[in-house]
Computed example of a mutant assay.
Amino acid sequence: MSNQNFLPQVGQLVRIVQGRDSGQFALVVKILDERFVVLADGDKRKFDRPKKKNIHHLEFFDYVSPEVQNSIMETGRVTNSKLRFALLNFVNEHVTDLKKGELN
């Protein structure tokens, strides 16, 4: 997905491409400006101590977790268990499908 003229959404799933956490998945919990977002995964990066990342260091997926998005919009926060649940669902459904497709 091209980062030009692209606006990330709260609750959107990303894969970190550069940095210490490269290869890991996380969810956007806040958009700071057109260049930076704040990420959390509910495990290593809790909601209370998220990671600020440049959007050019991320791979964005076309998946937005409705549970995470609704929780943040309604209350301004989300539980770490909800973040872990959303990540686990995505990884179980989509990442295993990608790996199966690569093998054929």
Results as ranks from 00 to 15, higher is better:
Arg77Phe: 14
Asp41Trp: 05
Asp62Phe: 05
Ala26Trp: 06
Leu32Asn: 12
His57Met: 04
Phe36Asp: 13
Gly23Arg: 04
Asp62Lys: 15
Phe90His: 07
Gly11Gln: 12
Ile55His: 02
His57Val: 04
Pro66Met: 02
Phe85Asn: 10
Val64Glu: 06
Asp41His: 04
Asp41Tyr: 08
Gln24Gly: 10
Asp33Tyr: 06
Val64Gly: 01
Ser65Tyr: 03
Thr75Cys: 07
Arg45Cys: 10
Phe90Ser: 14
Ile55Trp: 00
Lys51Val: 09
Lys52Tyr: 06
Val37Ile: 09
Val17Trp: 02
Ile16Met: 09
His57Gln: 15
Val91Ser: 04
Leu58Phe: 06
Val68Cys: 02
Lys51Gln: 03
Glu93Leu: 09
Leu13Gln: 14
Glu34Gly: 01
Gly19Met: 03
Lys46Trp: 01
Ala26Lys: 07
Glu59Leu: 09
Leu13Val: 03
Arg49Asn: 13
Arg49Trp: 08
Asn5Pro: 07
Asp33Lys: 00
Phe47Lys: 14
Val64His: 08
Arg15Ile: 01
Arg15Trp: 03
Phe6Gly: 06
Leu27Trp: 01
Arg35Val: 05
Ser65Val: 00
Ser65Gln: 10
Arg45His: 12
Glu67His: 08
Pro66Asp: 08
Glu67Val: 10
Leu7Gly: 06
Gln12Asp: 07
Val91Ala: 05
Val95Asp: 07
Lys53Gly: 02
Leu58Asp: 12
Val95Thr: 11
Asp41Asn: 13
Val64Met: 00
Glu59Asp: 00
Val64Asp: 02
Val78Met: 09
Pro8Gln: 13
Gly11Ser: 05
Ser81Cys: 10
Gln9Glu: 13
Gln4Asp: 01
Val95Arg: 02
Asp33Ser: 02
Leu58Tyr: 01
